[in-house]
Design a protein around this nucleic acid. Structure first.
Lengths: 136, 136
DNA sequence: CTGGGTGCAAAGTATTTGCATGAAC
DNA sequence: GTTCATGCAAATACTTTGCACCCAG
């Protein structure tokens, strides 16, 4: 497992430091995490961890496409490991975020949008209530 | 025109102050503006305008559904007057933002979502290059 | 009038930067 | 050994708050 992260980090031109491995593992386990959540989790492993290290790593990992930022309506951004294109479900009650396999790119290819823009990417965020919050 | 904004503000339980009218007019003219852009534009009319006033108004206007925040990938949030549901096009080169009417219903008919979430809203942001930036 | 909005200054929070040390490769 | 990451402290940027005064309704 950790071996995979070491290789993956290096493939993205990132040195495999313990802090970066911990970020990778945390995102892998939790799916989506805010800066704060990451810090809270990692500080338990590295008692001298600096928030600046989190910020610096988040930035360089985004630049090198190792992770991606997801902007959530009415909430803080979260970060996730880069994977195949997908969309997000957000629970307005408990904040749960899930991936969902919606890739609109092929659809837009079949049904071109009326615009002069040359579209490269699409970001879709669906919000509502998760199964738990619907029943409580 | 200003009359319309006065009525619209009041319908949203907002007193029609000169500052709020100016925010309304600026958003109407420019479509989408960041906090900074709004401040830069309004300070020309109100030499003693406070940034705090912008922030306070943006918040209460969002709460009262008079405006909405749009989170843009890799950029600051912008704000727009509330109107019928629509999506956004963002130019990765010049930052231009345009509204676009995208109806995802046919897509979801073909590809029903597999989720236990009860979905209430969707936010779609398409990014790429506007016609001008494609040719330069 | 009266409630609520404004500007200002201060406080609070979030993010970035510079630098000396230390670790990855 | 060389390059680059880390932690710390300081700086900067962003946003919120409290309060006295003022304006919209």
């Amino acid at each position: 497992m950790m071996q995979d992260f070491i290789h993956s980090l290096r493939e993205h031109n990132l040195k495999a430091t313990p802090q970066r491995l911990a970020i990778s593992a945390a995102l892998y386990q939790n799916g989506h995490m805010s800066i704060d959540a990451l810090y809270e989790e990692l500080i338990r492993k590295f008692d001298s961890l600096s928030l600046a290290t989190i910020y610096k790593n988040i930035h360089i990992m985004i630049e090198n496409s190792f992770i991606q930022e997801v902007k959530i309506p009415h909430a803080k951004s979260v970060y996730e490991l880069t994977k195949e294109s997908h969309s997000h479900l957000v629970c307005n009650s408990c904040g749960l975020i899930e991936d969902i396999a919606v890739d609109l790119a092929p659809y837009f290819k079949q049904h071109p949008l009326k615009t002069t823009f040359k579209i490269e990417k699409s970001e879709l965020v669906l919000s509502g209530f998760c199964s738990h919050c619907q029943n409580s």
